[in-house]
Write a protein that binds this DNA or RNA. Structure first.
Length: 464
RNA sequence: GUGGCUAUAGCACAGUGGUUAGUGCACUGGUCUGUGGCACCGGUGACGAGGGUUCGAAUCCCUCUAGCCACCCCA
């Protein structure tokens, strides 16, 4: 590393805007969320699906909607080498639905329940809890339109946040099928026609492009108008109305607290009927304009729209960066990765050779072992052992080499004992199991103390 | 895409026109090839990039880039 000033490149490599490295010390939050997600999926009977981050652009245009901001200005789209337009996925549902159709999942027992977790991309301006590459996990139920599905999925989402100790509020609405939406849009237009001048500039634009969005404008004057504006629930067709009533009945039966929010709308075109979001709740603050932790709803028309058989479906997605922000802000315990059990220190070339083998033997015996074999002095090795907070250090020096022994040092009280080298593994196992049951049990996933990353972490494709 | 604020070592900060840009933590070497937490001594390492004003710029001005916050939008 002979770094002279003149050798330095002028421009240092730098993260692309809106991108973020997830550093080792952050991983425990991600591990935590992965674990809780997998756990939830298992208990509710969802199977994991991973779809590619890259898809045909048309998949997203046809599902999310040509007119939406996501498609219009936020997609990472480009022509590949065969001159096909491809895009980095901006959300997860479209890919899952594509897979459902493409793999003929309608021939599986319905509903098909799948979940995913991974990176998504939107060319947005970065902001609090918003990145250009961000991560979501999502749950989708395809092939069943029964209202009980809606309620149970909301229960699942609510439980996720609730069970990790976050206070959240479930917001529920129905945006209706395309038929009711048309009549609702008409009513909205009528209502706003005479009041157009009182609207903010954005809302005037929304009136043309996306009238539902008028309802959740943040400008006070617009909010005032929105209060008396017609509500989606009053313009539901008979079917949609009946469905929504049933959903609410099931929610009541589950005794989940929820807020009927007539101003809750969805940003993507494929949504129909039930819409819901989960908002963080902060003590003493009313959740006026929170950034949602999760959002979802029914999308009964999407499968058909993408060329599959008419298939009812519902799903939601949660933003992991936002969730982690909330976990940190609320001081939720996520557990620390378990450190090594034992440190192997060596002194002298012969001892180093032997220590290297001992390391392997200890590892095969299931212990987490640390070392700094490249160091010569015992002092730096003990310093490292201390930093790693191991319970025991094994010291193999010239004297021990001659005797066929090894020194076990208890790092807490400094008491040392010479033992027969042949017996060191069983001795250390005995000691570790004596003062900590969990330590010998680390192949088992334990919430309080997580196992170390598997060595093949790097090849575990498509985990986040 | 729009607006506001910001940019000094890995991190947290000081330095507001004038020597060789400081401090703490961290890292590293030593005191000390047979023992960590403590202490002491030493070392590595930075003015986001480019241009301008000036005798002289980390400091003033412009452009770019990035970050934060808000709008838009969304998870």
């Amino acid at each position: 590393m002979n770094k002279k000033a003149s050798d330095k490149p002028k421009k240092l490599p730098q993260l692309l805007r809106g991108m973020k490295d997830i550093l080792p010390e952050e991983q425990r939050f991600w591990d935590f969320i992965r674990q809780r997600t997998d756990q939830l999926a298992q208990t509710y009977g969802f199977a994991r699906i991973d779809t590619p981050v890259l898809e045909e652009t048309s998949l997203f245009v046809r599902s999310i909607g040509q007119e939406t901001d996501v498609v219009e200005k936020e997609m990472y789209s480009f022509m590949d080498k065969s001159n096909d337009s491809v895009s980095l996925r901006p959300e997860g549902t479209a890919g899952v639905v594509r897979a459902y159709i493409e793999h003929g999942m309608l021939n599986r027992p319905q509903p098909v329940k799948m979940y995913y977790i991974g990176p998504f991309f939107r060319y947005d301006r970065p902001q609090a809890g918003r990145y250009r590459q961000f991560h979501q996990f999502g749950f989708e139920v395809l092939g069943d339109g029964h209202p009980v599905i809606d309620a149970q999925l909301m229960m699942l989402a609510y439980s996720f946040f609730n069970e990790i100790g976050l206070s959240v509020s479930l917001q529920v609405n129905s945006v209706g099928c395309p038929t009711c939406r048309e009549s609702y849009k008409k009513a909205l237009n009528e209502y706003y026609r005479s009041r157009k001048n009182a609207l903010c500039e954005d809302c005037k634009r929304r009136l043309q492009k996306n009238p539902l969005r008028l309802l959740d404008c943040k400008v006070p004057d617009c909010q005032l108008l929105a209060q008396d504006a017609p509500q989606t629930v009053d313009h539901l067709c008979e079917n949609c109305h009946a469905h929504f009533v049933k959903v609410l009945e099931h929610l009541d039966g589950l005794e989940i607290p929820y807020v009927l929010n007539s101003r809750l709308v969805r940003g993507l075109d494929y949504y129909t009927g039930t819409a819901f979001e989960i908002w963080p709740v902060v003590e003493g603050e009313s959740p006026v304009n929170p950034s949602a932790l999760c959002g979802g709803g029914r999308y009964d028309i999407l499968v058909k729209q993408l060329g599959g058989a008419p298939t009812a479906a519902i799903g939601f997605a949660a933003g992991i960066e936002r969730l982690i922000n909330e976990i940190k802000a609320r001081d939720i315990k996520v557990g620390m990765p378990a450190g090594p059990d034992v440190f192997v220190a060596q002194l002298g070339d012969a001892a180093r050779k032997k220590a290297l083998r001992l390391y392997e033997d200890l590892r095969r015996a299931g212990l987490r072992v640390a070392e700094t074999f490249s160091k010569d002095g015992i002092k730096p090795q003990m310093e490292m052992a201390n930093k790693l907070a191991v319970k025991y250090a094994l010291i193999l020096g010239q004297k021990e080499m001659l005797d066929g022994t090894i020194l076990i040092r208890d790092m807490e009280n400094g008491i040392q004992e010479t033992v027969d080298f042949q017996k060191v593994i069983s001795e250390i196992q005995k000691r570790l199991s004596k003062n900590n049951v969990v330590a010998t049990n680390h192949n088992h996933i334990h919430m309080a103390e997580q196992p170390p990353k598997p060595a093949d972490e790097g090849t575990a494709k498509l985990s986040i």
